[in-house]
Nucleic acid binder design. Structure first.
Lengths: 230, 230
DNA sequence: GGCGGGCCTGAACGTTGTCTGGATGCGTTG
DNA sequence: CAACGCATCCAGACAACGTTCAGGCCCGCC
């Protein structure tokens, strides 16, 4: 998952960037409104954390522009505790959630997870696909109840597919969301990781759609078992 | 849900009492340590909010007495922001969470909810993981029945992992909970303590998830054998 | 107040696992 | 059948992690 963090305060920026990448997200950072707006307009983010008090272009304005040009990614706004009017303005401009400063890092992470869940149309922090279960809060995966050991990138790839379950996801989209901008796209790492996931989980879990990408389906998950049509 | 609030500052007491009962809790209030201790010892509370700077009997002493006499209800301690040593003492005495003054009411409420949730999940004050047993009220750890001597930080690290058993906990989260806010994050103390715990307890107890953090697992404690799906 | 011991810290160094990209093989498509 | 896309295998590079150790700090003890 790829996150855009728009925050001008240097300390907070460093703290959050760190916490977010610790949590396994790819993080891009902007320090002012213009930069933030540009990035959010051009790069595909799964969620945006947007401070409201920004130099050059105010957070509310940034958000309004995004929404006007059709950007629908979930946006969480950060605001000083006493600026209630900002909060209202933020919601009116199309924010999905807000958090008042100061806050605890974990709370922010929890809210980011919630936004990602909601965007995927999932109610709980656990995604269940056949006999496979992904606990996004604990960052753990179980198959038939047995815990499966995944590496960081394997997990992130699986999580992304699970959040877009049923949709065909292109290799390019995966690269864009799992890596940061400058990544050599000629490599075949995605294939490699898909292969590893298939081996560790279920060979039929991730379906290849030739020429388009990969797809994680409901009915595929229970494949390894005794089922009528496989 | 019934809450005990032990706070000597009149203004804060009124504010919190109001906020808590607004939130739907039944609130009892004590204004000094003795009264607080008495109430906590005789009445069944679901959660206690305990200020540390109290007349007659200090908060840490109150907490210690409760724990020694077997009271296991979750306790959230309130402390002045700069009294770091108090926080440590509070944890060692058996606190479940802490909040530094000044804080926002909403945050307190969020933490109270979290404590209640957690208490609902974990029935006893003793956490058992394989042959390891952690007595959170006595801050004692036994392995195969033999007591293990842990230092303060070792214990706190273990306890935090145990409270979040099964969850992958990032180094950053650990640092945030074990140390003061501004702690040099480039140090490797966490690794050192994880190493010590592994040495003192079980080498397979704490699992490392590369790039994400550490995880304390149920199944790991029993035997470090190679299981099917790993 | 000086002394000793345990504990925490941070740096250095050794080790391991993960990531990556190329080579190769297989199946599918046109 | 040739070309292409995808899967698998492999090994080097590298970062993350583990281990050890010495210095500093605090505390209790003499």
């Amino acid at each position: 998952m790829r996150v855009l963090l728009v925050e001008d305060d240097q300390d907070l920026q460093r703290l959050l960037r760190r916490a977010l990448s610790d949590a396994g997200y790819v993080v891009d950072v902007a320090s002012d409104g213009e930069e933030g707006h540009y990035l959010g307009d051009t790069e595909p983010y799964d969620v945006v954390i947007l401070d409201l008090g920004l130099p050059k272009l105010d957070g509310v304005a940034v958000l309004e522009r995004w929404r006007k040009s059709g950007r629908t990614m979930p946006v969480l706004i950060l605001t000083a505790r006493d600026r209630w009017s900002d909060k209202v303005a933020g919601f009116d401009a199309g924010a999905d959630d807000y958090l008042a400063k100061p806050f605890y890092t974990e709370e922010l992470l929890a809210r980011v997870r919630a936004l990602l869940r909601r965007a995927a149309g999932v109610a709980t922090s656990e995604i269940e696909i056949g006999n496979l279960r992904i606990d996004t809060r604990a960052s753990r995966v179980t198959l038939d109840g047995n815990p499966v050991k995944l590496t960081s990138l394997e997990y992130r790839l699986l999580a992304y597919l699970a959040h877009h379950r049923g949709k065909v996801v292109s290799r390019g989209e995966l690269v864009e969301h799992l890596y940061d901008q400058d990544f050599d796209r000629d490599s075949n790492t995605i294939e490699v990781f898909v292969g590893r996931l298939r081996k560790k989980l279920d060979p039929n879990l991730i379906q290849t759609v030739r020429g388009l990408g990969y797809c994680l389906e409901d009915f595929e998950a229970s494949a390894g078992k005794d089922r009528p049509n496989v």
